[in-house]
Protein backbone atom coordinates (compact mmCIF):
# COMPACT_ATOMS: atom_id res chain seq x y z
CA UNK A 1 0.00 0.00 0.00
CA UNK A 2 1.07 3.54 -0.73
CA UNK A 3 2.07 6.04 1.90
CA UNK A 4 -1.15 7.07 3.69
CA UNK A 5 -0.12 10.75 3.83
CA UNK A 6 0.43 10.70 0.10
CA UNK A 7 -2.88 8.90 -0.50
CA UNK A 8 -4.78 11.59 1.39
CA UNK A 9 -2.58 14.37 -0.03
CA UNK A 10 -1.66 15.80 3.37
CA UNK A 11 1.64 16.72 5.01
CA UNK A 12 3.12 14.44 7.68
CA UNK A 13 2.51 17.28 10.12
CA UNK A 14 -1.18 17.59 9.21
CA UNK A 15 -3.61 18.05 12.08
CA UNK A 16 -6.46 15.63 12.77
CA UNK A 17 -8.88 18.19 11.35
CA UNK A 18 -6.85 18.50 8.16
CA UNK A 19 -6.75 14.73 7.76
CA UNK A 20 -10.48 14.46 8.30
CA UNK A 21 -11.18 17.23 5.83
CA UNK A 22 -8.89 15.69 3.20
CA UNK A 23 -10.60 12.33 3.63
CA UNK A 24 -14.07 13.83 3.30
CA UNK A 25 -13.16 15.58 0.08
CA UNK A 26 -11.66 12.42 -1.43
CA UNK A 27 -14.54 10.22 -0.23
CA UNK A 28 -17.03 12.55 -1.94
CA UNK A 29 -15.01 12.22 -5.10
CA UNK A 30 -14.33 8.50 -5.01
CA UNK A 31 -16.96 6.66 -2.96
CA UNK A 32 -18.09 3.94 -5.40
CA UNK A 33 -21.76 4.26 -4.45
CA UNK A 34 -21.71 7.96 -5.27
CA UNK A 35 -19.96 7.31 -8.60
CA UNK A 36 -21.53 4.13 -9.95
CA UNK A 37 -19.94 4.47 -13.39
CA UNK A 38 -16.38 5.07 -12.19
CA UNK A 39 -14.64 1.72 -12.48
CA UNK A 40 -11.55 2.91 -10.64
CA UNK A 41 -13.46 4.41 -7.75
CA UNK A 42 -13.47 1.19 -5.77
CA UNK A 43 -9.70 0.76 -5.77
CA UNK A 44 -9.14 4.45 -5.06
CA UNK A 45 -11.66 4.52 -2.23
CA UNK A 46 -10.16 1.38 -0.71
CA UNK A 47 -6.77 3.12 -0.48
CA UNK A 48 -8.33 6.32 0.77
CA UNK A 49 -10.29 4.67 3.58
CA UNK A 50 -7.36 2.48 4.58
CA UNK A 51 -5.15 5.58 4.84
CA UNK A 52 -7.84 7.34 6.83
CA UNK A 53 -8.34 4.33 9.13
CA UNK A 54 -4.64 4.46 9.95
CA UNK A 55 -4.18 8.21 10.35
CA UNK A 56 -7.40 8.98 12.26
CA UNK A 57 -6.31 6.72 15.10
CA UNK A 58 -3.63 8.67 17.09
CA UNK A 59 -1.99 5.51 18.43
CA UNK A 60 -1.78 3.83 15.01
CA UNK A 61 -0.55 7.06 13.46
CA UNK A 62 2.17 7.41 16.12
CA UNK A 63 3.33 3.84 15.58
CA UNK A 64 3.32 4.29 11.78
CA UNK A 65 5.32 7.52 12.09
CA UNK A 66 7.80 5.75 14.38
CA UNK A 67 8.18 2.98 11.80
CA UNK A 68 6.74 0.33 14.13
CA UNK A 69 3.97 -0.67 11.72
CA UNK A 70 3.65 -0.30 7.99
CA UNK A 71 0.64 0.83 6.06
CA UNK A 72 -0.35 -2.70 5.03
CA UNK A 73 -1.80 -3.48 8.47
CA UNK A 74 -4.60 -1.06 7.78
CA UNK A 75 -5.80 -2.62 4.57
CA UNK A 76 -9.49 -3.25 4.48
CA UNK A 77 -11.05 -6.54 3.55
CA UNK A 78 -12.81 -6.65 0.19
CA UNK A 79 -16.27 -5.21 0.55
CA UNK A 80 -19.19 -5.21 -1.82
CA UNK A 81 -20.59 -1.77 -2.40
CA UNK A 82 -24.23 -0.86 -2.63
CA UNK A 83 -23.87 0.07 -6.30
CA UNK A 84 -23.21 -3.55 -7.23
CA UNK A 85 -26.63 -4.51 -5.91
CA UNK A 86 -28.41 -1.34 -7.00
CA UNK A 87 -27.15 -1.77 -10.56
CA UNK A 88 -27.70 -5.53 -10.43
CA UNK A 89 -30.59 -7.68 -11.59
CA UNK A 90 -32.17 -8.20 -8.16
CA UNK A 91 -32.49 -4.51 -7.37
CA UNK A 92 -35.60 -3.48 -5.52
CA UNK A 93 -36.16 0.21 -5.43
CA UNK A 94 -35.96 2.19 -2.20
CA UNK A 95 -37.14 5.36 -3.92
CA UNK A 96 -40.24 6.94 -2.45
CA UNK A 97 -42.99 7.41 -4.98
CA UNK A 98 -44.69 10.33 -3.25
CA UNK A 99 -43.62 13.78 -4.26
CA UNK A 100 -41.06 12.79 -6.85
CA UNK A 101 -41.45 12.56 -10.57
CA UNK A 102 -41.42 8.97 -11.73
CA UNK A 103 -40.52 7.39 -15.02
CA UNK A 104 -43.73 5.39 -15.13
CA UNK A 105 -44.73 6.95 -18.45
CA UNK A 106 -41.62 5.63 -20.15
CA UNK A 107 -42.24 2.13 -18.81
CA UNK A 108 -45.86 2.11 -19.87
CA UNK A 109 -44.84 3.19 -23.32
CA UNK A 110 -42.25 0.42 -23.47
CA UNK A 111 -44.66 -2.17 -22.14
CA UNK A 112 -47.08 -1.33 -24.94
CA UNK A 113 -44.34 -1.23 -27.54
CA UNK A 114 -43.11 -4.65 -26.51
CA UNK A 115 -46.56 -6.19 -26.51
CA UNK A 116 -47.32 -6.21 -22.80
CA UNK A 117 -44.12 -7.92 -21.72
CA UNK A 118 -43.45 -5.23 -19.14
CA UNK A 119 -44.98 -6.97 -16.18
CA UNK A 120 -44.41 -5.74 -12.67
CA UNK A 121 -45.18 -2.04 -12.97
CA UNK A 122 -44.96 -0.39 -9.60
CA UNK A 123 -48.22 0.37 -7.92
CA UNK A 124 -46.85 3.41 -6.17
CA UNK A 125 -47.63 4.53 -2.65
CA UNK A 126 -45.56 2.08 -0.69
CA UNK A 127 -41.93 2.94 -0.16
CA UNK A 128 -40.75 -0.58 -0.87
CA UNK A 129 -42.58 -1.20 -4.08
CA UNK A 130 -42.39 -4.37 -6.09
CA UNK A 131 -39.81 -4.30 -8.84
CA UNK A 132 -40.35 -1.19 -10.89
CA UNK A 133 -37.98 -2.15 -13.65
CA UNK A 134 -39.01 -3.17 -17.14
CA UNK A 135 -38.47 -6.87 -17.56
CA UNK A 136 -38.25 -8.76 -20.77
CA UNK A 137 -36.86 -12.01 -22.05
CA UNK A 138 -33.76 -11.81 -24.21
CA UNK A 139 -33.96 -12.52 -27.91
CA UNK A 140 -33.50 -15.98 -29.33
CA UNK A 141 -30.56 -16.51 -31.63
CA UNK A 142 -30.01 -19.22 -34.22
CA UNK A 143 -26.91 -20.81 -35.63
CA UNK A 144 -26.15 -23.58 -38.08
CA UNK A 145 -23.60 -26.21 -37.18
CA UNK A 146 -22.01 -28.50 -39.78
CA UNK A 147 -21.53 -31.97 -38.32
CA UNK A 148 -19.95 -35.07 -39.75
CA UNK A 149 -21.95 -38.19 -40.56
CA UNK A 150 -20.34 -40.10 -37.69
CA UNK A 151 -20.85 -37.33 -35.11
CA UNK A 152 -24.54 -37.37 -35.94
CA UNK A 153 -24.77 -41.16 -35.93
CA UNK A 154 -23.05 -41.82 -32.63
CA UNK A 155 -23.55 -38.47 -30.87
CA UNK A 156 -20.82 -36.01 -29.93
CA UNK A 157 -20.02 -32.96 -27.85
CA UNK A 158 -18.92 -29.89 -29.72
CA UNK A 159 -17.82 -26.46 -28.57
CA UNK A 160 -18.71 -23.67 -30.94
CA UNK A 161 -17.26 -20.19 -30.72
CA UNK A 162 -19.69 -17.41 -31.53
CA UNK A 163 -18.69 -14.21 -33.34
CA UNK A 164 -18.63 -12.34 -30.01
CA UNK A 165 -16.07 -14.78 -28.58
CA UNK A 166 -18.59 -16.55 -26.36
CA UNK A 167 -18.46 -20.33 -26.53
CA UNK A 168 -21.40 -22.71 -26.53
CA UNK A 169 -21.35 -26.37 -25.55
CA UNK A 170 -23.49 -28.32 -27.97
CA UNK A 171 -24.38 -31.93 -27.35
CA UNK A 172 -25.20 -33.62 -30.65
CA UNK A 173 -27.58 -36.43 -29.75
CA UNK A 174 -27.00 -39.96 -30.97
CA UNK A 175 -28.93 -40.47 -34.19
CA UNK A 176 -29.18 -36.75 -34.94
CA UNK A 177 -30.76 -35.97 -38.29
CA UNK A 178 -29.98 -33.48 -41.00
CA UNK A 179 -31.67 -30.07 -40.35
CA UNK A 180 -32.49 -31.16 -36.82
CA UNK A 181 -32.91 -28.14 -34.53
CA UNK A 182 -31.37 -28.20 -31.06
CA UNK A 183 -32.62 -25.74 -28.46
CA UNK A 184 -30.10 -24.49 -25.89
CA UNK A 185 -32.19 -22.92 -23.19
CA UNK A 186 -30.95 -19.60 -21.87
CA UNK A 187 -28.02 -19.37 -24.32
CA UNK A 188 -29.51 -16.58 -26.41
CA UNK A 189 -29.31 -12.83 -25.84
CA UNK A 190 -29.36 -11.74 -22.19
CA UNK A 191 -32.68 -10.60 -20.77
CA UNK A 192 -33.17 -7.07 -19.59
CA UNK A 193 -34.35 -5.81 -16.25
CA UNK A 194 -33.78 -9.22 -14.72
CA UNK A 195 -35.76 -11.02 -17.41
CA UNK A 196 -34.54 -14.46 -18.48
CA UNK A 197 -32.09 -14.88 -21.35
CA UNK A 198 -33.37 -16.02 -24.72
CA UNK A 199 -32.62 -19.43 -26.21
CA UNK A 200 -30.08 -20.43 -28.82
CA UNK A 201 -31.29 -22.61 -31.68
CA UNK A 202 -28.70 -24.70 -33.45
CA UNK A 203 -29.58 -26.32 -36.76
CA UNK A 204 -27.46 -29.34 -37.60
CA UNK A 205 -26.23 -29.72 -41.16
CA UNK A 206 -25.04 -33.25 -41.77
CA UNK A 207 -22.26 -33.91 -44.24
CA UNK A 208 -22.54 -37.12 -46.29
CA UNK A 209 -20.10 -39.96 -45.60
CA UNK A 210 -17.71 -41.44 -48.13
CA UNK A 211 -19.23 -44.95 -47.88
CA UNK A 212 -21.91 -45.05 -45.19
CA UNK A 213 -25.48 -44.13 -45.99
CA UNK A 214 -28.31 -43.84 -43.55
CA UNK A 215 -31.90 -44.93 -44.16
CA UNK A 216 -33.99 -44.38 -41.06
CA UNK A 217 -32.11 -46.20 -38.32
CA UNK A 218 -30.22 -48.53 -40.65
CA UNK A 219 -26.76 -47.93 -42.00
CA UNK A 220 -26.15 -49.12 -45.55
CA UNK A 221 -22.68 -49.81 -46.85
CA UNK A 222 -21.35 -51.49 -49.97
CA UNK A 223 -18.38 -53.72 -49.17
CA UNK A 224 -16.09 -55.06 -51.90
CA UNK A 225 -15.05 -58.70 -51.63
CA UNK A 226 -12.55 -60.62 -53.70
CA UNK A 227 -13.62 -63.33 -56.10
CA UNK A 228 -12.08 -65.89 -53.79
CA UNK A 229 -13.90 -64.58 -50.69
CA UNK A 230 -17.16 -64.60 -52.67
CA UNK A 231 -16.78 -68.10 -54.00
CA UNK A 232 -15.18 -69.79 -51.00
CA UNK A 233 -16.62 -67.64 -48.23
CA UNK A 234 -14.58 -66.37 -45.31
CA UNK A 235 -14.32 -63.94 -42.46
CA UNK A 236 -13.74 -60.33 -43.42
CA UNK A 237 -13.37 -57.10 -41.50
CA UNK A 238 -15.97 -54.42 -42.29
CA UNK A 239 -16.32 -50.87 -40.99
CA UNK A 240 -19.29 -49.85 -38.83
CA UNK A 241 -20.14 -46.45 -37.35
CA UNK A 242 -18.56 -47.58 -34.07
CA UNK A 243 -15.46 -49.16 -35.54
CA UNK A 244 -14.50 -52.29 -37.54
CA UNK A 245 -16.14 -55.63 -36.84
CA UNK A 246 -15.54 -59.11 -38.27
CA UNK A 247 -18.30 -60.78 -40.24
CA UNK A 248 -18.70 -64.00 -42.16
CA UNK A 249 -19.17 -63.98 -45.91
CA UNK A 250 -21.07 -67.17 -46.82
CA UNK A 251 -19.74 -69.46 -49.46
CA UNK A 252 -21.07 -68.57 -52.92
CA UNK A 253 -21.87 -64.92 -52.21
CA UNK A 254 -22.40 -62.60 -55.11
CA UNK A 255 -22.44 -58.91 -55.96
CA UNK A 256 -25.68 -57.64 -54.47
CA UNK A 257 -25.80 -60.22 -51.68
CA UNK A 258 -26.96 -58.39 -48.55
CA UNK A 259 -25.88 -59.34 -45.08
CA UNK A 260 -27.14 -57.85 -41.84
CA UNK A 261 -25.08 -56.81 -38.84
CA UNK A 262 -27.59 -56.73 -36.00
CA UNK A 263 -27.79 -53.60 -33.83
CA UNK A 264 -24.92 -51.92 -35.67
CA UNK A 265 -27.16 -49.15 -36.96
CA UNK A 266 -28.20 -45.90 -35.36
CA UNK A 267 -30.01 -45.88 -32.04
CA UNK A 268 -33.48 -44.45 -32.53
CA UNK A 269 -33.94 -41.30 -30.46
CA UNK A 270 -37.53 -42.12 -29.53
CA UNK A 271 -37.56 -45.86 -29.08
CA UNK A 272 -33.95 -46.30 -27.93
CA UNK A 273 -33.71 -49.34 -30.23
CA UNK A 274 -30.68 -49.54 -32.49
CA UNK A 275 -31.06 -50.21 -36.21
CA UNK A 276 -28.90 -52.60 -38.20
CA UNK A 277 -26.08 -52.25 -40.63
CA UNK A 278 -26.95 -53.63 -44.04
CA UNK A 279 -23.86 -54.76 -45.93
CA UNK A 280 -24.18 -55.17 -49.69
CA UNK A 281 -21.37 -57.20 -51.17
CA UNK A 282 -19.67 -56.27 -54.40
CA UNK A 283 -17.40 -58.83 -56.01
CA UNK A 284 -14.27 -57.31 -57.46
CA UNK A 285 -11.82 -59.00 -59.74
CA UNK A 286 -8.17 -58.80 -58.89
CA UNK A 287 -6.27 -55.87 -60.30
CA UNK A 288 -3.36 -56.77 -62.53
CA UNK A 289 -2.66 -59.91 -64.49
CA UNK A 290 -3.67 -63.29 -63.06
CA UNK A 291 -2.53 -65.82 -65.74
CA UNK A 292 -3.37 -68.82 -63.54
CA UNK A 293 -6.92 -67.60 -63.07
CA UNK A 294 -7.26 -67.02 -66.81
CA UNK A 295 -5.86 -70.47 -67.55
CA UNK A 296 -8.25 -72.06 -65.09
CA UNK A 297 -11.25 -70.30 -66.64
CA UNK A 298 -10.15 -71.44 -70.10
CA UNK A 299 -10.47 -75.03 -69.03
CA UNK A 300 -13.40 -74.48 -66.68
CA UNK A 301 -16.67 -76.18 -67.59
CA UNK A 302 -19.47 -74.70 -65.44
CA UNK A 303 -21.84 -77.22 -63.82
CA UNK A 304 -24.78 -74.86 -64.31
CA UNK A 305 -24.20 -73.09 -67.62
CA UNK A 306 -26.48 -70.10 -67.70
CA UNK A 307 -26.80 -66.86 -69.65
CA UNK A 308 -27.14 -64.03 -67.10
CA UNK A 309 -28.55 -61.75 -69.84
CA UNK A 310 -31.27 -64.05 -71.06
CA UNK A 311 -34.08 -62.02 -69.46
CA UNK A 312 -32.82 -58.86 -71.12
CA UNK A 313 -32.74 -60.37 -74.60
CA UNK A 314 -35.86 -62.47 -74.77
Amino acid sequence: MKDPYETLGVARTASDAEIKSAFKKLARKFHPDLHPDDKEAEARFKDISAAHDLLKDPEKRRRFDAGEIDASGAERPQQRYYREYADGPGYTSHAAQDGFASNEDLEEFLARAFGGMGAGMGGGGSRRQSSATFKARGQDVSYTLPVTFLEAATGAKRTITLPDGKTLQVTIPEGAEDRQMLRLKGQGMPGFGGGPAGDAYVELHLAPHAFFQRKDDNIHVEVPVTLKEAVLGGRIEVPTITGPVTMTVPKGSNTGTTLRLRDKGVRNRKTGVAGHQIVTLKVVLPEGDEPELAAFLESWKPKHPDDPRKEMLS
Partner: peptide, 12 residues
Protein backbone atom coordinates in the same frame (compact mmCIF):
# COMPACT_ATOMS: atom_id res chain seq x y z
CA UNK B 1 -32.26 6.03 -4.72
CA UNK B 2 -33.77 8.03 -7.54
CA UNK B 3 -30.40 7.98 -9.28
CA UNK B 4 -30.19 4.18 -9.01
CA UNK B 5 -33.82 3.78 -10.13
CA UNK B 6 -33.14 5.89 -13.16
CA UNK B 7 -29.98 3.93 -13.87
CA UNK B 8 -31.92 0.66 -13.67
CA UNK B 9 -34.50 1.99 -16.14
CA UNK B 10 -31.81 3.35 -18.42
CA UNK B 11 -30.02 -0.01 -18.35
CA UNK B 12 -33.24 -1.82 -19.24
Amino acid sequence: DQLYDTRARLNS
